[in-house]
Structures are given as structure tokens and as C-alpha cells.
Design a protein around this nucleic acid. Structure first.
Lengths: 116, 116
DNA sequence: CGGTATCCTCATAGATACTG
DNA sequence: CAGTATCTATGAGGATACCG
């Protein structure tokens, strides 16, 4: 029996939740073109708090989507990069982001029509 | 300037949040093969409360992704169906669900490795 | 620089009860 | 059947302070 996110206790539902998470989507996309430092990601993903970014990155690390590399320098430099598994998420998440930006106008029109 | 979900106040970010929502994903997918009644959707999406399902469906209706049709019968029959705009989300969301089910095993392995 | 720890709040999911 | 209304509590997430 394959995983079934329609079932409430199937682990795939939790996974689906996490990969659709607001910060996860943007963080993964940020790492598309190569390793990035903590502060670079934070600047790129406007509005993410340090706490949430740390939390999101830890979860991605645990799930094997991202690696964390500490360079022994002063000041410390920490770089995050996508694993092959993480890279395999780029297409699905990219499609989602593209949908949101491309269809935003239609959605806003629908909202105005609905208000009336 | 196109919508940019990296910006905290861009409406596309809210939209992205909503289409990645746990219930939204499953509800949209449930409507893939045609109109469904409220109770059918509720049974299919295991664990969703009446409140959350109503809320999710209302949001989808407002955003122009789903239509709501009340059939004047006793007992009342209410059917939900995807609009063309809603159908255009099937591919991106389907890809996301497929990713979650196909890579669940790898993620779980990574989690076990991380624990050690 | 890149965190961790703590506190606090406020949104929202869930449970429950009621209705056209 | 398909909701609405109300209450509660839980936990996501922000603010702040401190640390290696």
C-alpha cells in the first residue's frame, strides 16, 4: 500500500504540509542557484524571522533536503545547499510559485466579483 | 513589475500560502474527476472538520477556483466543482502530492540518519 | 555571524451545540 | 444534508535578550 495523504495518519500528509509551507517554498527556491549563507537567505526571503528561518532550515536538514556546512572562520560562515533530494523539489515548487504569480490577477478579479 | 512572493507584502505570497495549504491541496485534488458533494469531500479528506472544510471551500469560491451549486431539493444537495482556473492548479498540486508520496521513503531514511 | 533560549500573543484548528 | 455560531486551547510565530 503506497502512502496516501488523504488518510489523516499517513506520514505523507505531514510531509505534504511541510513542503507546502510558506517559508519552505521560498527557502528551497532561494537555494536553486547554489549554496547560500544564512544571512543571504534571510535577506532574500523578506519578512522571515531569524527563529522561523532557523526552524525551517533545521527541518529541511532533518528531512535530507538541505545540507548545512560550517566553515571554520572568524566570523563564522554557514552555508546551506540543496541535496539531490532537495533539488528534486525545485520543479514542483517552482510550478506552484509560477502558478501563484501568473494567476494572481485572475484570482483578484474573482475576489472582486465575489464581493459584489 | 510582476508579483514577487519573496516580498512580504506582495499579494502573491498570500495566494501561495493558500494554495499550499494542507486542506486546499487535498480538496482541489478531490474535485479532479468532477463535482462532489460536501459530505463526499469530507469523507474523502480524512480528518477534516466540518468547520475547516467549509472555510476552505468558501476561500476557494472567493478566489474563483471552485463553484458552489445548491440544488433545490429536500434534503438539500450542494455540489462543488472546479472552475477552469481551479483546474489549472491540478497539475502543480498533483506534482506536489506525487513528490510527497514518491519521496516519503527517502525523507524517512534521512530523518533516521539525522537522529544518529 | 549565526545562532539558542525565553517569554508572550494572537490566530486558528478543533469540539460542541444549534438550524434552515 | 449542509451548514452557522460559539467557545476553548494549542501551538505557530514574533520580540527580545544573550552566546560561541
Amino acid at each position: 500500500m503506497p502512502p496516501d495523504p488523504y488518510q489523516r495518519d499517513c506520514p505523507s500528509r505531514k510531509l505534504l504540509d511541510r513542503i507546502g509551507d510558506r517559508w519552505t517554498v521560498l527557502v528551497i527556491a532561494t537555494l536553486e542557484d547554489g549554496p547560500r549563507r544564512f544571512s543571504e537567505i534571510r535577506r532574500r526571503v523578506d519578512g522571515v524571522s531569524q527563529k522561523m528561518l532557523t526552524q525551517t532550515l533545521r527541518a529541511l536538514e532533518r528531512d535530507g533536503l538541505v545540507t548545512r556546512t560550517v566553515h571554520a572562520e572568524v566570523p563564522p560562515r554557514v552555508e546551506y545547499a540543496l541535496t539531490p533530494l532537495g533539488r528534486s523539489l525545485l520543479d514542483p515548487l517552482g510550478a506552484l510559485m509560477r502558478w501563484a504569480t501568473e494567476h494572481l490577477g485572475e484570482v483578484e478579479q474573482a475576489q472582486q466579483a465575489y464581493a459584489a
